[in-house]
Design a protein around this nucleic acid. Sequence first.
DNA 1: TTATTTATTGTACATAATACAATATCTAAA
DNA 2: TTTAGATATTGTATTATGTACAATAAATAA
Lengths: 237, 237
Amino acid sequence: MNTETIYNPYVSVDCVVFGFDGEKLKVLLIERNIKESNEWYNDKKLPGSIILKDEDLDDAAIRILNELTGLKNIYLSQFHSFGSPERTKNPRDILWLENTMKLKIERIVTVGYVALIKINRKIQVLSDNTEANWYDLKEVKKMRLAFDHEEIIWKGLEHIRYKLDREPSLFFELLPRKFTISQLRTLHDTVHQVRSDIRNFQKKVAQMPFVVALDEVEKNVPHRAARLYKFDRKKMW
Amino acid sequence: MNTETIYNPYVSVDCVVFGFDGEKLKVLLIERNIKESNEWYNDKKLPGSIILKDEDLDDAAIRILNELTGLKNIYLSQFHSFGSPERTKNPRDILWLENTMKLKIERIVTVGYVALIKINRKIQVLSDNTEANWYDLKEVKKMRLAFDHEEIIWKGLEHIRYKLDREPSLFFELLPRKFTISQLRTLHDTVHQVRSDIRNFQKKVAQMPFVVALDEVEKNVPHRAARLYKFDRKKMW
DNA sequence: TTATTTATTGTACATAATACAATATCTAAA
DNA sequence: TTTAGATATTGTATTATGTACAATAAATAA
C-alpha cells in the first residue's frame, strides 16, 4: 500500500513524556540521525509522527507513542496545538521527514500530548530502529531540537504544572510504586518551583487517606532510613 | 486564484464566543442555510472555517472570527483540538462544505478557540451573507448543531471556567463597561455554578483595587438603584 | 564513641473562608 | 401621604487553612 493512501501528512501528534528521577524532571526524546552532505548529524526530537487518514487524535497519540517507545496504558492528555507555518521549514527537518515518511511534506499542524510515567519503565523501540533516552529539562535548554519541539516541551511543562495542581493524585504516576515522603516533596517542589516546609508538607500528606504507610523502610541509605508509602487509588477523594 | 492553492482544507479553527446578558451565558452562532432535495434547511454552527495554507492558527482564528462577525481586538485563546474521523462525515455538513468552499473535503481537524466579549458589541457579517445570533446555553442543548460543534461548545465552556478561575480579571471582558456588584456576582455564580453569599462577595470585591466605584447609580430600576463600578486595568495586581 | 546525615514530629500565629440579618433606599401602588 | 415590595448595603463571630519555626530520633561511617 502506498503511504499516501494511509497517512494524513498535514496533521501530526507529538508526545511530551515526563519522568522523575528522584531529583529532577526529565523528558523522553528520540535520537535522530540525519545524513547531510555526507556528514552524519545527530539531534533529538519528541516521540511523534503524522496521523493516519482515518484515525482520531487521541488514538494516534497512543499508537505513535507505543510504536516509538513500547509504552502502553499511560496517562496521555492533549494540551495544545502548534501550527506556525515556520515550524516545518527547516531544511534539515524537511529532509528527515521526506526520507522517513516517503511523502512530500508541506506545513504540518501538530497536536501536543503530555504523559506522566515512572522513569524506570522499560522503553523499547518497536517499529523503528531509533533510540529513546531521558534528558534533564536543563539539558534541553542547551540543545537544538527538531522542529519547534523545544517550544512544545515548555508548553507541555506548563500544562502538567496546571494538571498536577488540580489533580495531585497525578504525582503518583511519576513516583515509584513505593516512595518516601521526601521523594513526594522533592517532586512537588520541583514541579511547583517552591521550597515547601518539611513539617507543613508532612502535615498535608497525613491528611491524604490515599497515601498509605507501608511496614517497610528505604534500604542502602547512609543515614536513618525513611518509611515507604504507597498510593491507594481506591481511597481517593 | 484557485481556492485549492490558498486553503489548507485539512485544518480549521472554530471560535466559541461567550457573552453575558446579565442573567445567563450565551454563545454566538452563525445561521446556516442548506438546500437539501429542494427544501431549505436551517441550522446553526460556530464561527469557524478552514485555515490558509501559510497561516498560523492564532492568526486564522482572529481573521475568521473577524470575517464572520466583524469583531476585532478580542481575547481569543486556544483550548482544544478535535479530530474525530466522524466529525466531517455527516452528508449535510459535507454538502455545505463543498458548496461553500468549492473544495473536495476529507476529514478536517479543527482547533477550538474561546473568546469572551461584551454582549452589546456590534456583530456585522463582512465576508459572507450569513447572520450571527446569541443563544442561551440551555437552548443549545436542544439544537442539532453542525459537525461536532456542540461538543466543542461544552469543552470551551469548561475551559473558560478554568480561565476565569485563575484570572478573575477576565470577568470584565463579559460585563458592560459600567456594572453593578450584583451583575458581577451573578456572572461569577453562573460561571462557577455556585450561590455565593452577598456579604462575603462584597467583601471580596472590596479587596480588589481594580474594581473602582463610580459616582453614579443604575437608572430605570423599580427599586433602590445600585452603585456602578468600572474595571481599571492599570490597578491590576 | 563521635560525627554526620536525614527522618520525624507540634505549637503558636496569621490569614482566609464562612455563616449569618438588620437597616437603607428607591419605586409603585393604595 | 402612606405603605408594601424590591433590592442595596454593611459587620461580626467562628472556623478552617496556611505559615513560621527547631528539637529530638535513628541510622551509618569514621
